[in-house]
Computed example of a mutant assay.
Amino acid sequence: MDARTAARYSLAGIRLVNGASALLTPRVMARRLGADPEQPALVYVLRMFGVRTVVIGAQLLCPTDADELDRMLRTGTLLHASDALAAACAGRNALLPRRMATVATVISTVNVALTLVARGWPCRPPEGTPS
């Protein structure tokens, strides 16, 4: 298995585990984040996050073609970068405990790196560039 495929499968695994956890056990996830697990709006948001994350994780396991896979990975880079930024901001503004904000930021940053490796970055030339 090459590095690109390993990165894709690793990213899919992280997404599926985190997404399933948020979807199926949102109160446990809320406690881990240091939030009130009985807050209905938080449970709802965590389940929405879980659904999104499970879907994008599952898509990585069975893309229909190389263009679709590249599109999913580009979208994933944007999603995970925005997740990392949101987690960092939440920690900075004390909306999450510093430790949990750091963990969430690191996980999302690792996911960004995995999307880039899975796309072949920085080794693969951009589309339309002569090799």
Rank of each mutant, 00 (worst) to 15 (best):
T53G: 07
G19V: 05
S131Q: 07
A66E: 15
E38S: 12
A12I: 03
N93C: 03
L16R: 06
E127V: 13
S108V: 01
A101S: 14
R31T: 15
A90M: 07
R92Q: 12
L42A: 12
L95F: 00
L114H: 04
D36H: 09
I14N: 03
R71G: 13
M48S: 05
L79W: 10
L42W: 03
G50N: 09
A88C: 06
P122E: 13
D65V: 09
G34T: 04
A20E: 03
A104W: 00
A7M: 02
L114Y: 05
R4F: 00
T102Y: 01
G76P: 14
V43E: 11
G34S: 06
A88S: 12
R71Q: 13
L61Q: 07
M48Y: 01
D67M: 09
G50A: 14
S108Y: 00
L33H: 04
T75D: 10
S82G: 07
L79V: 15
V55C: 02
N93F: 08
P126C: 01
A118G: 03
I107D: 03
R119T: 11
A101L: 05
L78F: 06
A81H: 02
A86Y: 00
A3R: 11
A7G: 05
V112Q: 07
L116Q: 15
R99K: 13
D83W: 08
M72S: 13
N18Q: 10
V103A: 11
